[in-house]
Simulated assay, not measured.
Amino acid sequence: MDVDPLALAALSAAVAAVTAVAAGYLARVRMPRPPVGVYTGGDIAVLCVGVVVAPLLYTALPGAAVSAVFGLVLCLAVQFTLAPLLAATRLRAAPWSWATALAGTAATALAALTGHPGAARAGSDLLIAVAVVGVANLWTQSGLRSTHAAALAAALTCYDLVATTLTDTTGRFFEQVRDRPFAPMLALTGGPHPVAVGLGDLLLLVLFPLVAAKAYGRAAAWCAALTGLLVTSAVSACFALGLLSTGFPLLTALGPLIVVQHLFRRRRADGERTTAQWREGRPLPPPAASGAARQPA
């Protein structure tokens, strides 16, 4: 399989850019707290079940219906991402965020319907990038902890391995959404073998550095972001060298590294900062004392 090395390099750059934008958003924009309270282990379990069941449901729908569902979800995600950002300006946040989200969604759909796949792909990528920035910030600012992020990564790693390697679930889903607008992937090229990263992979690549920053500070965030970038670049290099030729479940490499980072930080610190403590600018948790009781995760 011939893969453009420049496209592979651009994919790593795109992942780094989305992560940097999400970090800047976290530092400057306060999202309204949703009325569901803070995250618990039960919430993570429900989320994992949804991730597993959703592709099975989507493969039973026509491709056009799947595109419509993802288009609606992206439109809503872009709207709630832009609303807090525009609230800091003199513009009326709600009308302008809705107008921008609807315009971006409509322009992407129109490009696809009029036979401009490159424009449709670019529009989808932009919507996905904005949505990932918003969702990662919403989860982080709503109280998702490093423990929860690591548990989510571990569960999705197992699912990704089964769905991609041991069964054809991911392959069938990819064939259904390939080259359609709003496909759940950040794709720089089209065709049967696109240079792309899946939506779930991208979300965890962006999410964990934000959670690490809140829980353990800037050094932990930089380590998480660089680890994700190195994993993405290493997989891209394997494709460029011909060592990989089919879709690779990125989370099988990224997920364990997220868990290892969490366990390392957890052993070094006596607990992790909550969202309230992070907002107040509380100092990082002190080093864990040998044999001391630790704050529950």
Rank of each mutant, 00 (worst) to 15 (best):
A23R: 15
V66N: 02
F208Y: 11
A45S: 06
H116G: 08
V21R: 05
V53S: 08
A183V: 04
L72P: 00
V162Q: 05
P34K: 02
C223E: 15
L6M: 09
E175V: 00
L102C: 14
L6N: 05
A240P: 08
L257R: 09
V53F: 09
A77R: 03
D125L: 11
L110T: 15
D2I: 12
D270A: 15
L56K: 06
E272K: 09
W278V: 08
Q261M: 11
Q176G: 00
P287N: 10
L210D: 04
R178W: 01
R90C: 08
V38D: 14
T108S: 08
A23S: 13
F248P: 11
V195P: 00
G247C: 11
L161F: 11
A154D: 03
V3L: 11
G104Q: 10
G191K: 02
F80D: 06
L126P: 03
T232V: 15
G217A: 06
P286L: 02
A99H: 02
A253K: 03
R90T: 13
T167G: 00
A221R: 10
L152D: 06
A14E: 07
A45W: 10
P296S: 01
A129K: 06
C223H: 12
Y58G: 00
L152Q: 06
D201G: 02
T189D: 04
L127P: 09
F208R: 10
A155N: 06
